[in-house]
């Protein structure tokens, strides 16, 4: 028994060895990799897309940005707002996301390069004390509570099938844009509505968010889709707006029970089945009744000849 315990300890020690080694080593990135420039402009769309990807792929280990609640692994997955991550060049971040190390997986073939740059743009947007640059109007964070009244309005760009939702605060007859609100756009369907953006989009300085209309989304028989925009972060959920747009694929619903089939109700059975069943039943039982009538004749003959 004792020997087994030693064995287990030995296994645990050697099992942890590579991890311990990693934690002490410096994560070096070649100068060529580190010098790579981010080709994707850090606009709203890229940052929002990066946010969705971060939430889907990174958050489970690195935690909520700014809260330092990443998993207690060794080495510790760092908070994306921390200096340890932020002091990396864009190229170094790309290299590290792509190749991973220890418990950090390789995302080289899992996430497209363009999406990796979106994530990096998102990570940069989280940088503490970052001021709105000329190329991006993303606010630092979602405003915690907005006191005034908020109204939402849809605007549609037909050429690119883009949905724009604008949040405004009507004050003394003037509509003031509200930045920093999290907005989600839904398409109305049976049961739960379909989210068109996975995570809430944050309104920019103009109080606007942009969502692409998915080309494959089915509409009603003439392609109409009922859209719904709702403030899901920043103020209460009750602020919403809906509008109908004819961008969906026309979808004509054919009830499977309107056609004759084996799975339909009895009288909607296929013709061949109805005909063969009733044909055989009527044929056979007709013959049986004919025989019964013939037997009836026997009696008639008997009584006729007796008299």
């Amino acid at each position: 028994m004792n020997r087994h315990i030693y064995l287990i300890f030995a296994l645990i020690f050697f099992g942890c060895l590579p991890v311990l080694t990693y934690s002490q080593a410096v994560w070096t990135v070649s100068s060529a990799d580190a010098a790579k420039k981010n080709p994707v402009p850090a606009n709203d769309k890229s940052v929002n897309s990066g946010k969705s990807l971060y939430n889907a792929q990174c958050k489970s280990c690195h935690g909520d940005p700014g809260k330092g609640n990443g998993l207690p692994l060794v080495p510790k997955p760092q908070d994306p707002t921390s200096d340890i991550i932020q002091k990396n060049s864009d190229g170094a971040l790309l290299y590290k996301i792509s190749n991973g190390r220890g418990a950090m997986p390789r995302f080289k073939d899992v996430i497209k390069d363009e999406d990796k740059w979106n994530i990096i743009n998102y990570i940069r947007s989280l940088k503490k004390g970052k001021t709105a640059s000329s190329e991006t109007s993303v606010p630092d964070a979602i405003i915690q509570s907005f006191e005034g009244k908020v109204e939402l309005a849809f605007r549609f760009v037909d050429s690119t099938k883009t949905i724009i939702v604008k949040a405004v605060n009507p004050k003394e007859g003037v509509l003031i844009p509200v930045p920093g609100l999290g907005i989600t756009v839904f398409a109305k369907r049976y049961f739960r509505d379909l989210k068109l953006n996975a995570d809430a989009l944050i309104t920019n300085a103009d109080g606007e968010v942009e969502v692409d209309f998915p080309g494959s989304l089915p509409g009603d028989s003439i392609g109409n889709v009922l859209l719904l925009a709702r403030v899901t972060e920043g103020v209460s959920d009750s602020v919403a707006v809906s509008a109908q747009i004819g961008w969906g694929k026309p979808f004509v619903y054919i009830n499977p029970r309107s056609e004759r089939s084996l799975w339909n109700s009895t009288w909607m059975a296929p013709w061949w089945l109805l005909l063969s069943y009733f044909g055989v039943v009527i044929g056979v039982w007709g013959t049986i009744f004919y025989i019964v009538l013939e037997v009836g004749k026997l009696k008639k003959i008997g009584s006729q000849q007796a008299s």
């Binding site: 056979v284 004919y290 009836g296 004749k297 000849q305």
Partner: peptide, 27 residues
């Protein structure tokens, strides 16, 4: 059923049995 063994009655019995004998095969 009023059987008097007349030729007509025999004909009916034999015909009916023959029809039934054929009918019962597929059934």
């Amino acid at each position: 059923s009023g059987w008097i063994a007349s030729p007509e009655q025999y004909a009916i019995i034999r015909k009916s049995m023959r029809i039934l004998a054929i009918l019962i095969v597929p059934v």
